[in-house]
Design a binder for these strands. Structure first.
Lengths: 163, 163
DNA sequence: ACATTAAAGTTGACGGGTCAACCAATACAG
DNA sequence: CTGTATTGGTTGACCCGTCAACTTTAATGT
């Protein structure tokens, strides 16, 4: 994983010209924050629900009736975060849980009628948003973006970045 | 051991049965979270400092002696967040402030000797990290990634996504 | 000059997100 | 069968990040 002198020089120029702004991680975090804000605005307008709660409803709605652990693993969601928001969703009558007969630690989760209605109402809205975001790019740009994200994700898990 | 992103993607069932996993925003937020975790790990090992505090030190170190408002505007950082972390950095003796003679609202910030030392020590480490991340991709992939981020950032600011 | 408005920074409140301690139930080893 | 380890889930603690209220000081306008 060696670097060409040219690239190093480019890095240096960019850094001293514009600290932080050109850092990949910095740009990513800003873009992600803006996308989050947008999603929250859309969700609160469409269904008066937070993003994290929408994610939980979408998980339950799309994965069928399963238990919390399965969903948090699938979505890489913190189980504490999940638990708290699930509680408020149950208070709001969007989700119900029944105990698993075989394993009493497990609660099987399902959407209530209200939860289903919300899911069916919001899902197309969020899909449309995703389409709109994608449509800002060409197909090949989108492919490269996904590939780049894969690579970044792998690099982010490395403990030693040839430091 | 955690699964690679590729394996997780292969776990995904049908396209529509797994809404979250293919959502661009979802992937972005996960990658960003992992990059953040990595940065925090590196920083806490190298200098026992948090990411936000490093950003503040890097801003002061690279922008010269300026006031808080200038830096928060430049970095799109919340001024409240900045203020609080600045306070702890001053407690730790990394930053000092002196009042501007012309405008008494303003405090001019500078790094102390300790702050400078930390800055000079950590900067190459973080720049090496950026190089390592970039080197995971080809030049053209990087270009497309930056272009895609530009477009996403613009799309994220739109109020109506043809919904 | 005085009143109004705006800017710089501090503080409080609150949700998101991570981590660890903890409890209850199950699985497992001897 | 019994003690131990593991798993599912809840709760508490803590930081990040956003938003808004508020104080102090400066700019503006009449």
């Amino acid at each position: 994983m060696t670097k060409s002198p040219i690239q190093q020089a480019e890095d240096a120029d960019a850094f001293f010209a514009q600290p932080l702004h050109q850092f990949l991680t910095y740009r990513l975090s800003r873009v992600q924050a803006k996308l989050n804000t947008q999603a929250q605005r859309i969700l609160s307008a469409a269904a008066d629900i937070s993003l994290i709660q929408w994610r939980i409803i979408a998980l339950i709605g799309s994965c069928g009736d399963t238990h919390a652990g399965e969903l948090t693993r699938r979505a890489a969601l913190d189980k504490g975060l999940f638990s708290r928001n699930l509680k408020t969703l149950m208070k709001r009558g969007m989700v119900t849980s029944r105990e698993d007969k075989a394993d009493h630690r497990i609660a099987i989760l399902s959407l209530t009628a209200d939860g289903q209605a919300l899911y069916q109402k919001v899902l197309p809205i969020m899909r449309a948003r995703q389409r709109a975001l994608r449509s800002a790019m060409t197909k090949s740009e989108l492919d490269v973006l996904h590939r780049a994200l894969d690579k970044l994700e792998i690099a982010a898990e490395k403990d030693d970045l040839d430091l």
